[in-house]
Design a protein around this nucleic acid. Structure first.
Lengths: 230, 230
DNA sequence: TCGTATATTTGATATTTATCAATCGAATCC
DNA sequence: GGATTCGATTGATAAATATCAAATATACGA
């Protein structure tokens, strides 16, 4: 682990309130591993052996059925993933794949399950994380069912902006092909959607997003103020 | 509460392992209320005041945006709902509405949050429930993104069959209008889908479902064995 | 820097799904 | 029992989205 990283990981909501002793045990048993881009970390259906914490890089969680596949979420650094599979000791529901070179802290699932029982702060943090993850998927499902494709794009851009502190200019993460899959549409339709949004207050050029008229974009996209996470 | 109901509610996974003392406090502060059909219990955006446990009846959880609305899940008796909002002390994400006359146990949210901290068994049960709820929504999102409407209907019927112990004949719950919304399609397309499935091993007549050729229905619907809940 | 592979965009068309309109059918109310 | 109401079905059409096929752009390696 690089200097400065352990304190940083310790500040994750999941680990921040733990007792020092349990945190030491957790770090001692975990290891940080580097993965190349485009590598599948695990497949849906496999037993959950490790809680993953993305320290650096970008990871996609996806699902497949009968030859078709779709991207479900994008994990950014300093977030853990697949906590639900780890705590329930059930198989992974999603396949994880690195998008860029990534460093990932692997925490043995068995240890997490044990520590949850011993450390009340960790237990509460797990509850909070699961509840937030749950809400994120409720939101994603509602988004897909109630909005059509161009509106979903608009909302996605507004959400990204909010996560960057309300910035009007920012970069998209990952390839557009993958963004299209995340938003539940083809790359062709994502592209056309970007075109249509030029008239609604955002310009997309390459991976650069510029919100030129936020009020207009909001009027077009109908965001739900109370349920956007973060 | 009717005789025999309290023991029954106590056997819910959520409460089963709690210490007797905490369970007494919980029941003492809760109350069972009867609601007529078609009544909105709470709206998305409201603060979560009570954990709800459906004792009898049928409840729909739905979401709305910009005039459009959709059904997200159907709650059947002896399940709790909106645990995520209660434990995080955040607003409800979904609107709840009774479909039939329903009896619901209302547990003050503040008390649930307090007891979670004191009773390790309850805490673990909350983690399990949240993780299961999370997985259910991952599954719903995947279903919607990867399958087209008639396949979704086929899978829904297979899942209902599994929940009834693999029965080939059973009744659909709720109105078809609501089932269509749950499955992310219009009532017209649900109806046409039922028609198409007659050639794929299921006959639907009114609310009566008869699976006549399960192998064929499975071949058509491509269920994911490892992730159907229950 | 050029050439090649790959992603993105654009256009034409096909498929899926929604909408609108009408009819059918089952439950309910006098 | 018969009228009425509302949900479900069916048919015709429209809208949204996907697919297929180029054409352009972009990134990357020799």
């Amino acid at each position: 682990m690089r200097p400065g990283e352990r304190p940083e990981i310790s500040r994750l909501p999941l680990f921040a309130e733990m007792r020092e002793e349990e945190r030491d045990r957790l770090f001692a048993a975990s290891f940080l591993q580097v993965f190349p881009p485009e590598l599948t970390l695990f497949e849906a259906g496999q037993q959950a052996d490790f809680l993953h914490v993305l320290v650096d890089g970008l990871v996609e969680l996806k699902a497949a059925n009968h030859g078709r596949e779709t991207s479900l979420t994008l994990v950014e650094p300093l977030h853990s993933f697949i906590l639900a599979a780890v705590v329930t000791d059930m198989p992974y529901l999603m396949t994880a794949r690195t998008l860029s070179a990534s460093r990932i802290l692997l925490v043995p699932a068995e240890l997490v399950r044990g520590l949850i029982r011993q450390d009340k702060a960790l237990m509460m943090a797990v509850i909070r994380e699961l509840a937030n993850g749950y809400r994120e998927f409720v939101r994603a499902l509602t988004d897909l069912k109630l909005r059509q494709s161009t509106e979903r794009i608009g909302n996605h851009l507004l959400l990204q902006s909010r996560r960057r502190g309300g910035a009007d200019n920012f970069q998209l993460k990952g390839e557009k092909k993958m963004l299209a899959s995340l938003l539940g549409m083809t790359p062709e339709n994502l592209s056309r959607g970007f075109g249509a949004l030029a008239a609604e207050g955002v310009i997309i050029s390459g991976s650069q997003v510029s919100i030129t008229d936020r009020a207009r974009l909001e009027a077009f996209s109908h965001p739900d103020p109370f349920y956007d996470p973060l």
